[in-house]
Design a binder for these strands. Structure first.
Length: 768
DNA sequence: GGAGCCCCGGTTTTT
DNA sequence: CCGGGGCTCC
């Protein structure tokens, strides 16, 4: 097996150990995926049958890429039989296969988060409890937490800790919502994402024979990104592997950034508690980044208390220092980043696709976009609304779901009046209520409206019957037509396709394109399945598409464009140059992270992930003010900057403060005082005074001193409506203030002297 | 039942 | 600033 020579010693050891449980701690850029793929190839070459290998990942993309690499090593004909996929897709397959033991049908629908939220919302409404207190997102995250910890509604009711916690949080009825939510999902023959794991656990618990079957089937189990597993996932893996303990988990505790989604870092930290004989392998050589970047990242993560200590090192060149970029406004930040990108291209020959801009929140992308656009720098933004979350796409999918599973409540509610066919909210409300009282699905009510005493007038009844017949007709076709042919019929007959042709507005055009795109995707899906000799009906399509996100949209990933994404989305990727922007208190770390040391440490890991994306150059920028939620707020450099050993940082020469910023301080005195009166604590030096030259150390000291000071000045702009006095124009009223190219401008009405647009850095205005 | 206005609230998000 | 949801008016 000469391919093992392509590995370094620790990688090779990790690959060759197959006799028992092992934990591979893989530092950033240390060849984690390589170890996994080689290990699978190694097992296959040792004669293990591909169907006995279960490899679990967190994204479809990771699974697909790994499968491709393995196919290259051992051949496609072998690789295709591997059980490789996301937790959710693998276990949804098993749940469908074992449907008669689960209480769900094999055609069960999968509710995505928005389906879950909308169902929760309707339940909260039904229970007549306050919708503001019981916000769908909040309730969903609690339900999700419960499910991830295998706490059923009954167990929840018996758990005094949870009940108390809910009482203190003033949401004591969460448990009722959870209970009803579970019933409604069941009635709709639908599982949400968390159910796929919960129900798998329940299946294994209630049916030891089934568990045993899969234990025997999977003689080797591998788990990628183990630091991101939750309890439900941990237990599935544990149950499947506890007899033979031929399990290998790979991950990096330093890159655990999904605890808000239920991931439990303890799973990796305490792996040895579950598998006491486990061998631990550490991959510590980083092949991605320069020494400076690796060392800087190490010095940062060293500040976390909860971690598995490791010594990540790089043998690449030392490389440039991490450059700190300090600006006064977020607009200026955009300009500086754009300029630096141009410089990287000119002086170092980087191309756009070598460069990424990473931020903490999606909303930061806007200003950056504008700055790049102004300098004609091409970019591509990842994240935001995914393809499958777009309305028109979800509508079409909802038709498919309803045809496949008539009881799917969220699907029927979604499309019963799309395109508009005169079945409004009132009617849907009646239908839902009627279904509730008889404990049946909405579809059941439609089947026999008279028997269920549905109180609608004759016209509405006709429309409902028409809808029901249409869905039944599609369903009757679903055996003879493949997914593509059926969806084609749907979009034509329902008028969805015509709906998108109503006008030539950009929105309508885009919807049209999206539907076409979907049709194309379904077409490809069908062709692939047919080539592989598999069926390609609507159910086959749905079971794939429900667990698909467009993270793996590779359409123009290799084009000449700068990548812009959140740090979360950047995990696993690498770029020659990385800009981490908005490194400010309350933004990164997020203001939400201050509740606990744990969440603060997670933010630090997030920053660690960001830095370690860089191969050669890393830039960290922060701004002294930022436009957020409609307001300009002042901000201080992130505490995390001072966590990095200053010897790896190149701090900026502080520019002389522009006069407009200084005078702004004065003009805002009254606003300043009002606020500081309200909040007792404030420091008078909100803005760093001009400094000729600041070393990294000094700057970091300032960061240290300023962090923790609550912001009191909210609006740096001249207040609209204020009266000002100008040396030449006299007294005027402020109509509007804007910031263009980092310069604050004000539109001021000077009465008979007319309206003037003035740059505040030049106009000597006195606030009256 | 549907279009247009007002008010509120606003992290991250592999499935 | 922005989108979503609730409300009003046709």
């Amino acid at each position: 097996m000469e391919f093992l020579n392509e590995l370094n010693e620790s990688q090779r050891k990790a690959v060759e150990y197959v006799d028992g449980a092992s934990l591979v701690i893989a530092g950033a850029g240390s060849g984690k995926t390589r170890v996994l793929t080689y290990k699978i190839a190694y097992l296959l070459k040792k004669g293990i049958h591909p169907t006995s290998i279960l490899a679990l990942t967190f994204t479809n993309k990771a699974a697909r890429e790994m499968k491709e690499r393995i196919a290259q090593m051992v051949g496609e004909r072998t690789a295709r039989y591997l059980w490789m996929g996301t937790f959710h897709s693998v276990f949804s397959r098993i749940l469908r296969a074992e449907a008669e033991k689960t209480g769900y049908s094999k055609n069960f629908s999968i509710y995505d988060s928005s389906d879950s939220n909308s169902l929760i919302k309707s339940i909260v409404k039904d229970l007549k409890i306050d919708e503001k207190t019981y916000k769908a997102g909040l309730v969903h995250s609690r339900i999700s937490f419960a499910k991830n910890n295998l706490i059923t509604p009954d167990a929840y009711r018996g758990n005094t800790d949870l009940l108390k916690a809910d009482m203190y949080s003033k949401v004591p009825r969460i448990v009722d919502v959870y209970d009803i939510y579970t019933q409604r999902c069941k009635l709709a023959d639908a599982m949400d994402f968390d159910d796929l794991l919960l129900q798998t656990n329940i299946l294994f618990r209630n049916h030891p024979d089934v568990l045993q079957k899969y234990r025997n089937a999977f003689s080797y189990i591998l788990v990628d990104e183990y630091q991101d597993t939750n309890f439900a996932q941990y237990l599935i893996v544990r149950k499947l592997s506890e007899q033979h303990e031929r399990i290998c988990v790979v991950g990096d505790d330093a890159q655990s950034i999904y605890s808000f989604r239920g991931a439990n870092i303890d799973n990796i930290l305490k792996f040895k508690n579950s598998y006491s004989n486990a061998q631990v392998f550490k991959l510590e050589q980083n092949y991605r980044s320069t020494q400076t970047i690796v060392n800087a990242a190490n010095s940062l993560i060293d500040k976390n208390s909860e971690q598995i200590r490791k010594n990540v090192f790089s043998e690449k060149e030392k490389g440039n220092l991490i450059k700190l970029l300090s600006t006064f406004t977020d607009l200026e930040e955009g300009v500086v980043v754009a300029d630096s990108i141009n410089q990287l291209r000119r002086k170092q020959g980087y191309s756009y696709q070598n460069i990424a801009i990473l931020y903490r929140t999606n909303s930061q992308s806007r200003v950056l976009e504008e700055a790049l656009r102004k300098k004609a720098i091409p970019y591509r933004i990842y994240g935001g609304l995914s393809f499958y979350q777009r309305k028109e796409i979800k509508d079409v999918i909802a038709y498919c779901r309803l045809i496949n599973n008539h009881n799917d409540e969220e699907a029927i509610k979604r499309i019963i009046n799309v395109p508009a066919r005169g079945i409004g909210d009132t009617t849907v409300g009646k239908l839902t209520e009627c279904a509730q009282t008889h404990a049946v699905s909405i579809w059941d009510v439609l089947q026999d409206m008279l028997a269920y005493n549905l109180a609608v007038n004759a016209g509405t009844a006709t429309k409902l019957a028409g809808f029901r017949k249409m869905i039944s007709f599609f369903a009757s076709q679903s055996d003879s037509l493949n997914a593509y042919e059926l969806v084609m019929q749907i979009v034509k007959m329902t008028g969805i396709i015509n709906d998108t042709y109503v006008d030539k507005s950009p929105e309508a055009m885009s919807r049209q394109e999206n539907v076409q795109e979907l049709l194309k995707a379904i077409h490809e899906f069908c062709e692939q399945r047919v080539t592989a000799g598999e069926s390609a009906n609507i159910g086959d399509f749905l079971s794939e598409v429900s667990l698909l996100t467009d993270q793996d949209n590779t359409d123009d990933a290799n084009t000449e464009k700068v990548t812009m994404m959140t740090v979360h989305a950047a995990k696993g990727l690498e770029f020659k140059a990385v800009f981490i922007v908005g490194m400010e208190e309350d933004l990164f770390p997020s203001a939400y992270a201050f509740e606990s040391e744990r969440s603060l440490e997670e933010e630090r890991r997030l920053f660690y992930v960001a830095i370690t994306r860089a191969e050669e150059q890393c830039f960290i920028s922060f701004s002294k003010s930022r436009f957020r939620n409609g307001k300009t707020t002042n901000s201080n450099p992130s505490r995390f900057i001072k966590d990095i050993d200053p010897q790896y940082l190149d701090a900026p020469e502080e520019k002389v403060q522009p006069s407009w910023l200084q005078r702004q301080d004065e003009s805002f005195d009254f606003e300043f005082e009002r606020k500081s009166f309200q909040h007792q604590s404030f420091s008078s030096s909100k803005v760093t005074k001009p400094v000729e030259r600041q070393t990294a150390q000094k700057l970091i000291k300032i960061a240290a001193r300023e962090q923790g000071t609550k912001q009191v000045v909210e609006n740096k702009n001249l207040p609209v409506g204020a009266f000002v006095k100008h040396a030449v124009f006299g007294i005027g009223k402020v109509l509007e203030t804007t910031i263009a190219d980092g310069n604050e401008k004000a539109e001021i009405d000077f009465g008979e002297k007319g309206k003037k647009s003035l740059l505040l850095k030049f106009a000597k205005l006195e606030l009256l």
